[in-house]
Design a protein around this nucleic acid. Structure first.
Length: 328
DNA sequence: GATTAATGCTAAA
DNA sequence: TTAGCCTTAATCT
């Protein structure tokens, strides 16, 4: 499901395909009828992601806040102007899993307006050139600028925004509690955007025990953790999926090293096979079974030390770690 | 075809 | 602390 990298891709997509466009806003499902009426007919100026939330800023100063939660998703479609505006490969869907659209899909000459809404479409946005449908969000509401500031004020720093001072603020927040860092990383007021996959993978890459109390985490270790999360989440934005293994740790030997991506982007490559986001990105070819170190690898040998990867339930979520590399 | 678990949060209890 | 959101993919019968 969507962690921060997906939401940043989503915000990019909205700015690309709807930025500056007047929108018809409706709620086919009926659960957002009042909210839709407050936005209908206004111009979407830009989209901004903060952690796992997306904010759509309209020209009359109202803001639409969307949180996809566990299985929310957006579907897109439109003419060639619409799909051509997308800088991330005109995906057909962004949500728990991204579905590639690419040049051939949907867009282009045959566009005949949005389809009949199927299922529970909470929100439909329609511009002159295309449409977007939202299903299954955890949160979807209209906010004033003041309310927006209040919501964002409760969120911790987002490494994918990385505003000045954000790293120091993260270090301060994670170290103020004796709560284990495995729990701390999931708190959106400590660091906005990390979910269960990036939590497990970043702690493994840092060699840190998830039970280590925040207060005991060294300042340099916390800084390094922020830097690594920034790198692997940045890769997630580029790749459209979470790949946290280094090249040398993949049996398949496919893809490039995390955080390295030499020569990226290389657009000219493999014209015949281009389709979808990052089609020329070698990391899109990394097999799923090679993508992670510990997430959903319980019982399998650690890629570094061979110890069986462990799993335990922590605050209602599964925590994966290597007892050998990350302590008992 | 039915059941379950899932990259997550919100609101009610 | 628990139900709800109400989708998707994987696993079961």
């Amino acid at each position: 499901m969507p962690e921060g990298h997906s939401v940043h891709r989503l915000a990019r997509q909205f700015s690309d395909v709807f930025g500056g466009a007047q929108l018809v806003v409706s709620s086919p499902q009926g659960k957002f009828t009042a909210g839709a009426a407050r936005l209908d007919g206004h111009v979407l100026e830009r989209a901004q992601a903060h952690g796992k939330q997306m904010f759509l800023f309209f020209s009359h100063d109202l803001v639409m806040r969307v949180h996809l939660g566990l299985y929310g998703a957006w579907d897109f479609g439109g003419d060639s102007t619409f799909t051509g505006a997308s800088s991330i490969g005109a995906p057909r869907r962004i949500g728990e899993q991204e579905v590639a659209g690419g040049d051939s899909a949907g867009g282009g000459d045959g566009y005949d307006g949005p389809p009949e809404p199927k299922g529970a479409v909470r929100v439909r946005l329609v511009s002159e050139h295309g449409w977007a449908d939202l299903r299954g969000p955890t949160a979807c509401e209209v906010l004033t600028p003041q309310e927006t500031a209040a919501v964002r004020g409760k969120l911790g720093p987002d490494p994918l925004n990385n505003y000045p001072g954000d790293r120091d603020e993260f270090v301060r927040r994670i170290r103020t509690s004796s709560t284990g860092i495995g729990l701390q990383l999931m708190k959106q007021e400590v660091l906005a955007g990390v979910g269960n996959v990036y939590r497990a993978e970043s702690l493994f890459r840092a060699g840190l025990d998830p039970r280590l109390p925040g207060r005991v985490l060294h300042r340099d270790a916390a800084e390094a953790l922020w830097d690594d999360i920034l790198a692997i989440m940045g890769d997630g934005v580029r790749d459209g999926r979470i790949i946290t293994t280094e090249l040398a740790d993949r049996p398949s030997g496919l893809g490039v090293g995390v955080g390295l991506a030499p020569g990226w982007p290389h657009d000219g490559g493999s014209p015949g096979t281009a389709s979808g986001p990052g089609a020329s990105n070698p990391n899109t070819r990394v097999p799923v079974e090679d993508a992670h170190y510990v997430y959903k690898r319980q019982g399998r040998p650690c890629r570094h030390c061979g110890t069986e990867i462990a799993v335990a339930e922590l605050a209602g979520r599964k925590l994966y770690w290597c007892p050998g590399c990350q302590g008992g």
